[in-house]
Nucleic acid binder design. Sequence first.
DNA 1: GCCTCACTAGTAATAATTACTATTTAAATG
DNA 2: CATTTAAATAGTAATTATTACTAGTGAGGC
Lengths: 147, 147
Amino acid sequence: MPAAMEQATHLLKDNNLKITKQRKAMLEYLVDTASKRYIDVTSIDDFMRQSFPKMSHNTIYRNISEFADLGIVERQIQGDRASVKFQCDFQHEHHHHFICSNCGKVIELKDCPLSDEITSQLAGCEVTGHLFQIYGLCPECANLKNN
Amino acid sequence: MPAAMEQATHLLKDNNLKITKQRKAMLEYLVDTASKRYIDVTSIDDFMRQSFPKMSHNTIYRNISEFADLGIVERQIQGDRASVKFQCDFQHEHHHHFICSNCGKVIELKDCPLSDEITSQLAGCEVTGHLFQIYGLCPECANLKNN
DNA sequence: GCCTCACTAGTAATAATTACTATTTAAATG
DNA sequence: CATTTAAATAGTAATTATTACTAGTGAGGC
């Protein structure tokens, strides 16, 4: 079992969630397809229901929600589609991403732009989070477009 | 007529779009309520249809789209709701925002975190845009919460 | 004031997501 | 290993947000 699966199932157990066939199948699919790119929720729904015709929307959406709550996947709207990506690494240090707007692929960035200079402009505010992302075409998609 | 309305109607005319009662009413509402905060699209829909019971969803959504295309409003997903904000200033220089996750209010930031150091990590990529936003509670909402 | 084309109302369809409930199953326990 | 039980699931239906379609209307140029 790949490390990512280990970590994910561990997290489920720690939270009294059962390792069902459905969850396992979903996690495997996500590790395979959404480890380095965002994939939209409806195509997860489509795929799972093709592979397991008896699976209900409910199950898929609920599980995605739970995975997100546990930090197993990261939710985000790409373009106008609700998407998720498998968490890069559970013990990974804070970082940001370049995201290909064509294929959803992500590239990790080293820097975090949050600085004292910036937060000092926010006197009285309670800062809870931030988002920094660069968009564009990854080398592969840029090539395809220019040829 | 406030400057923002002037600019917006000018932009519409320049693009062969007519200044209809419906558009005017929507713009007025947006200038009033969405100049310094994000407001979600469904509540625009609700409000407009309360004020003008004969207005159709179609009209509201189409106009929001057109306003967005012209840069009159800025679209964004806040939490999980499609939201818009009136454009800060049409000739305003590039900047980013702190956004209150409770009330949607925005505070402008001076800095842009995009640097050569960062883009140099993206060899081969075609960068088309970026997003930098800080989230949290504005001073008012932070106060409310702590009392 | 008239004409034309963009715009709108009204209705209906679609897509994505959530709700509900009877049944099933993972996994804890004896 | 058999029993038990809370959690999860399937199946169906509802809801919510958004878009499509078409006949009729009105803004604004002439």
